[in-house]
Amino acid sequence: MRDGTVDFETEEEERPLGPALWRGWNRVCPRCGSGPMLRGYLTVRDNCPVCGESLHHQRADDGPAYLTILIVGHLMAPVILWAFVEFRPDPAILATIFGIGTVALSLFLLPRLKGAMVALQWAKRMHGFGSGSGRG
């Protein structure tokens, strides 16, 4: 408070990025770390059931899918090349093994990256997560 006016920047709670991203990766509320962020596989809840933080502001859209494709492609492409050169398996076996591995890794990463993206938006006060968003 300066000269009778309220300084909103100093009175807002601090939102450290690292813990928020870790909580998002674990698919829990970026604010309290207790309540589940997702309802189902990829649907973000409107509010945290524990602390009441509004989560409906999120705009993850296609970002988590793009990141999943980027990560899975960069991990699997060199491994499939190495496996083909080193072991020379039948192409059908190679496609089956790496097809299953690619789908499994994608299914593992997608909800975690969505949680991390929502947490990033929350920590950086993006898309309505700013000072006016609050709980409820």
Rank of each mutant, 00 (worst) to 15 (best):
V28E: 10
S133F: 02
T5Q: 00
D61I: 09
P16D: 06
L17F: 02
R27D: 07
D90E: 12
A77I: 08
D3S: 14
I69W: 06
D62P: 03
L109W: 13
P36I: 09
R112K: 08
G128E: 14
S34Y: 04
H57W: 12
C51V: 11
I69T: 00
S106D: 07
L120D: 02
G63C: 08
I80C: 12
H57A: 13
L113A: 00
L109D: 10
L110Q: 08
T5D: 13
H74K: 08
D7L: 09
D3A: 15
R31E: 09
V72A: 08
G101W: 04
F98K: 02
E11M: 12
I93S: 09
H57Y: 15
A20S: 10
T102Y: 10
R112E: 01
G35I: 11
G40C: 05
E12A: 14
E53F: 11
G99F: 12
G128T: 11
P36E: 07
L42C: 00
R88G: 05
A95F: 10
G63T: 02
E9T: 08
L42Q: 02
T43K: 15
L120V: 02
F8Y: 10
V103G: 07
V72M: 07
V50H: 13
A65G: 12
P19F: 01
V50S: 14
E14N: 07
M126V: 09
V118N: 03
L81G: 11
W25S: 04
L120E: 05
V79S: 09
M117L: 13
F87D: 08
I69Q: 02
P111K: 01
L21F: 02
G18W: 12
S131T: 05
E13K: 14
G101N: 07
K124C: 02
L105T: 13
V79I: 11
S131F: 06
Y41S: 04
R88T: 07
E13H: 12
S54P: 03
P30E: 06
S131A: 12
C29T: 13
A65C: 06
R39Y: 09
P111H: 05
L105F: 09
V72E: 04
E9I: 06
A60R: 11
N47H: 14
W122D: 01
H56R: 12
M126T: 01
F8G: 06
R125F: 10
L55H: 05
R31N: 15
V103P: 08
K124Y: 02
L110D: 00
R45W: 05
P91C: 06
P36A: 10
S34N: 07
D90H: 09
L38A: 13
R23C: 10
H57T: 03
D62F: 01
K124P: 00
L105C: 10
G99C: 08
R23P: 03
R112G: 04
S54K: 15
F8M: 08
G18Q: 02
L38Q: 14
F108H: 09
F87Y: 07
V118H: 08
Q58I: 03
D3V: 06
W22T: 11
S34D: 11
R112A: 00
F8D: 11
A77N: 05
P36K: 00
R2P: 09
V50A: 15
R112S: 01
T43W: 12
V79P: 01
P89M: 06
T43R: 13
G101F: 03
T10F: 00
E12V: 13
I71Y: 01
F8K: 14
M117E: 07
G73Q: 00
H127D: 14
V85E: 11
Q121W: 06
P49C: 12
H74S: 08
V103L: 15
G99A: 15
